[in-house]
Design a protein around this nucleic acid. Structure first.
Length: 569
DNA sequence: CGGCGCGGCGCG
DNA sequence: AAAGCGCGCCGCGCCG
């Protein structure tokens, strides 16, 4: 059993430099040192090499971005802003510390644009940066967790969330190795040569084909209302201009229009302009926003990191002498659901490679496609169509798992709140929602009031239904990331110059995380370490499962690949 | 001119 | 083929 890390609070001191406050095991301050801001990276590096430290700070991007760019990496942190948000909303918390009243910690994350100026300690836009305020907030958080009924889970969540915050900053700093050559080749292949002004040739060709097929030389293809009218004039009676709607119609304009939309999407979302703006020195560096989604999932800002088309993944290329280890979890959400619900029948169906095949073997449905549709429908709250029709069969086969999501939905419909496995709690309904419900139950409620209220209640039920599953899956992924990050950091740097990465911070000279997307990771590694990295990826997945669910028999099989990333299917 | 809602579409 | 959850970003069109 490793001893607990030392705890050090970091914050601005009254004199304008940085205070490091060492805490004892009870969280009481035992000593304070003040250091000049320019000396901070060296001081922190020295403490890191002297022993295991958890750095307690207001906000990870604020502090860690500058440290990383000075070449200093830390192992552990406690992000007061992120943990505050968890505890503020957590249903399992008694707020006798007055934590919920400390609203200055509710401030949004620091904008990345501001990071360069933050260490001037001027007018900060983020949460309090002062060491005394940070210490007081940490003591509130510690005490709040200690008396919660689920102290162990909340502490685990706080630590995992903070490790995620470190990882998010590191992912941005390291970036995803991206070949502008491969990307440009794909663009030219699909769109034609880059043009100085006007649209690329393939897009113009498709547009001309559409207008010709519509017999409408002036048809606007980019304005939805105008396009809809043009389609109607040509006798194509679609209700929308979506590709699914269009695809159901058999008209010579449909194929070129779908092609136009596809090419236009590539051009506007991930074309040359995107490349120029987001790829620097062979790296795509999105801004990751840990816990940016209410469920605890990460969001991203800039570059659309969560929406890189699979077809563009061919532009992800390791540096010379390096390779990529790509892994994603097969059916993470239903596995997490099985474990949360302690549903041994679903866990048994999930055992091995493919959960959906296991569901078929259980006899609940006939085909893999039905199993997938039914399971997604159960977790998302489908009520109509084939998905809605199949869900009752899952209810009979897996009553515990389905009972868990059905309960979550009912609580949401009633205006209640639900929590993830580790205790992240969904937000309470807003005033408008409450007003709608009480108006509908009043004496002079109209039929319209009741319809609207019922629809809003069901909308919220679908949200809370999904919240418990999506949020717990996000917790599993955090645990996976955190454990993997630690394991990777123990793999030695490679000294061979031909295996040096082309760009990036110091820590990226050895195997490191390069991408994360909900249930998928990409590690950039020297080729000599690829097998060790793959082992670490698998081991950390197993470890994450045990950390959350103990000995409950659920496994989290990975699709893992060493080598160039390829588009799926 | 900027802000915002919407339709549409990419990702899990 | 799409429906049920969660996102971000694009262009358009409307508003002030």
């Amino acid at each position: 059993m490793a001893s607990s890390p030392a705890e050090v609070v970091l914050g601005r001191s009254a004199a304008g430099d940085v205070a490091l406050i060492d805490l004892d095991a009870a969280g009481m301050p035992v000593s304070t040192v003040a250091v000049d801001i320019d000396a901070l990276p060296d001081v922190i590096a020295a403490r890191e090499s002297a022993g295991d430290v958890r750095w307690i700070w207001s906000d990870t991007p604020t502090w860690y971005t500058r440290l990383l760019s000075a070449g200093v990496r830390v192992r552990r942190a406690w992000d007061l802003r992120l943990v505050h948000a968890i505890l503020r909303d957590a249903a399992s918390v008694q707020d006798d510390q007055g934590l919920r009243g400390e609203t200055s910690w509710d401030a949004a994350a620091t904008a990345l644009d501001d990071l360069d100026t933050l260490f001037a300690f001027g007018d900060s836009v983020g949460p309090p940066e002062g060491a005394d305020e940070a210490l007081a907030e940490y003591r509130r958080q510690r005490a709040t967790i200690a008396i919660a009924r689920t102290a162990g889970s909340l502490r685990l969540l706080a630590v995992a969330e903070s490790a995620g915050a470190l990882t998010g900053v590191e992912l941005h700093a390291a970036g995803l190795p991206w070949s502008v050559e491969a990307h440009a080749h794909l663009l030219e292949d699909q769109l034609g040569p880059r043009t100085a002004g006007g649209l690329p040739a393939r897009i113009e060709d498709a547009a001309a084909a559409v207008r010709s097929a519509l017999d409408d030389p002036g048809a606007s293809l980019d304005s939805q209302p105008k396009l809809l009218r043009a389609l109607h004039r040509a006798g194509i009676l679609v209700e929308s201009t979506s590709q699914w709607d269009l695809g159901r119609h058999d008209h010579p304009a449909v194929a070129p229009l779908l092609a136009y939309k596809k090419l236009m999407r590539l051009y506007t979302a991930n074309g040359w302009a995107w490349m120029d703006e987001w790829v620097r020195d062979g790296r795509f560096r999105p801004v990751y926003v840990p816990a940016g989604v209410v469920t605890g999932r990460w969001a991203s800002s800039g570059g659309g990191a969560l929406q890189i088309p699979r077809r563009l993944r061919t532009a992800v290329r390791a540096d010379p002498g390096w390779t990529l280890v790509t892994a994603d979890v097969a059916q993470l959400e239903p596995r997490v659901l099985a474990a949360m619900a302690r549903d041994t029948a679903l866990a048994a169906a999930a055992s091995g490679r493919d959960l959906y095949a296991g569901v078929v073997d259980s006899g609940a449905v006939a085909t893999r496609a039905e199993a997938k549709m039914a399971m997604l429908g159960a977790m998302y709250g489908a009520t109509t169509g084939e998905s809605g029709r199949l869900v009752p069969r899952l209810r009979r086969a897996f009553p515990r798992a389905m009972g868990l999501v059905d309960d979550a939905a009912r609580i949401g419909e009633d205006g209640g709140r639900v929590s993830t496995w580790l205790g992240r709690t969904s937000p309470a309904p807003g005033d408008a929602w409450r007003a709608l419900q009480s108006r509908a139950s009043g004496a002079e409620a109209s039929g319209g009031d009741e319809t609207n209220a019922r629809r809003a209640a069901r909308d919220r039920g679908r949200f809370t239904r999904n919240f418990v599953v999506q949020g717990t899956a996000a917790e599993w992924a955090l645990a996976w990331l955190a454990d993997l990050r630690t394991r990777l950091s123990t793999l030695a740097a490679v000294e061979a110059p031909d295996a040096a990465p082309r760009s990036g911070p110091a820590f990226a000279r050895s195997p490191h995380l390069a991408f994360f997307l909900h249930d998928e990771i990409i590690v950039h590694t020297p080729i000599v370490h690829a097998d060790a990295v793959a082992d670490a990826v698998r081991t950390s997945a197993a470890s994450a499962g045990r950390l959350l669910f103990g000995e409950f028999p659920i496994d989290f099989p990975l699709d893992l690949k060493i080598g160039p990333t390829a588009e799926k299917e």
